[in-house]
């Protein structure tokens, strides 16, 4: 019997990417995707289940489908996407319910991969230049997305402690860049003038979006329990990143940045994530060697990931968005998956 995988956040960038990659894997029998919204990428055999954002139906799904693997990608790490309350529902309450369902009596879940972010380490002048997985953060969390992720991780830790028979991998990704993803960092770099904090030039560590998907797949395929930092090699100063992308910086005052950014947000012009502003002062580095030692190979370094983004951005400037808008039509998807009229032997069933 092949594997039965549950993906949370199917309609997020990561959920969609992951489902596409898993569909190509013949060892995976069943892929179930949970989300509040319809999938935004074309999927062949993934079963989409609509749920509310905190998955109250989750335990029923786990019981009914007998999934053995959960990929928890539905964690919001970009606070500009939604309100504080919505983020709390998705991140904290969602994770709580997910683990409650996965640890219920008779649960068939044996492997869980959680996509967290290096935001949990924070960013302060007292930080080590590379955080290791065992390091505690130095500064108290100041943004709500950080607090939210820390709460999520405490649920993850509790779950791992209570369920030693489950192989749980917690992956902490650094800032993601790439051709298709939208993040606060790339949004800042796509403004006419990139924001910077006067007098500071922090170093950033980046990871390519393909490496992120590969890392999650790696954790799903290999038995690698524990916490892992996932980040490309090397760190690049912000000034150099701006130069590579071809942007000039617009300096913000080193003190009282909020006085500058909050009017911009009110006017709806620029919404800089507070966690990004912290980063623009001190940056953050994470030690990626533990995941390398576990056998994962990165395809991109920090600089390489940024180069890939720049190339994609050049292409986009010329030809526009390549993605023809895919729209999820429930009837059509149901027809292809379940109608007796569809020939189903192409997958060797």
């Amino acid at each position: 019997m092949g594997r039965r995988v549950l993906i949370t956040g199917l309609s997020t960038f990561w959920g969609g990417r992951l489902a596409q990659a898993l569909e190509a894997d013949p060892d995976v029998d069943v892929i179930i995707g949970l989300d509040t919204r319809e999938p935004r990428v074309k999927l062949e055999r993934t079963e989409y289940v609509r749920s509310d954002e905190n998955y109250s139906i989750l335990s029923r799904i786990v019981k009914a489908t007998g999934v053995d693997t959960i990929a928890h990608t539905f964690l919001v790490v970009d606070s500009t996407q939604m309100s504080s309350r919505a983020m709390h529902e998705i991140n904290v309450i969602g994770t709580m319910n997910l683990f409650a369902a996965a640890s219920a009596a008779g649960s068939t879940v044996r492997r869980v991969v959680v996509k967290s972010a290096s935001l949990v380490y924070g960013s302060s002048p007292k930080d080590p230049y590379w955080f290791r997985e065992t390091d505690r953060r130095v500064a108290a969390p100041r943004t709500r997305v950080e607090r939210s992720l820390l709460e999520v991780e405490s649920y993850v830790r509790d779950f791992a402690r209570d369920n030693p028979h489950v192989c749980l991998s917690l992956l902490r990704f650094c800032n993601v860049v790439g051709p298709d993803i939208a993040t606060p960092l790339l949004q800042a770099l796509s403004l006419p003038f990139a924001p910077k904090v006067a007098g500071y030039d922090p170093r950033f560590q980046l990871i390519h979006e393909d490496d992120v998907v590969d890392a999650i797949l790696f954790a799903l395929d290999h038995e690698v329990p524990g916490i892992f930092n996932v980040a490309g090699d090397g760190q690049i100063p912000w000034s150099e990143m701006m130069a590579i992308v071809g942007k000039r910086g617009i300096p913000m005052p080193p003190f009282g940045i909020a006085a500058v950014t909050s009017p911009l947000r009110r006017l709806g012009l620029v919404d800089l994530a507070p966690e990004l502003i912290e980063l623009l002062k001190y940056g953050r580095g994470i030690d990626n060697r533990r995941f390398k030692d576990a056998g994962f190979e990165y395809r991109y370094t920090s600089a390489g990931a940024l180069a890939a983004y720049v190339e994609a951005e050049r292409l986009r400037r010329t030809v526009g968005d390549r993605d023809a808008g895919y729209r999820y039509e429930e009837d059509v998807e149901q027809f292809f998956r379940h109608s007796p009229a569809v020939l189903r032997d192409q997958r060797g069933e």
Binding site: D233, G234, Y300, T301, A303, G304, A307, A308, E311
Partner: peptide, 10 residues
């Protein structure tokens, strides 16, 4: 400093 590793295409 490391560079892109996609077959060193970048």
């Amino acid at each position: 400093e490391p560079e892109g590793r996609r077959g060193d295409a970048l």
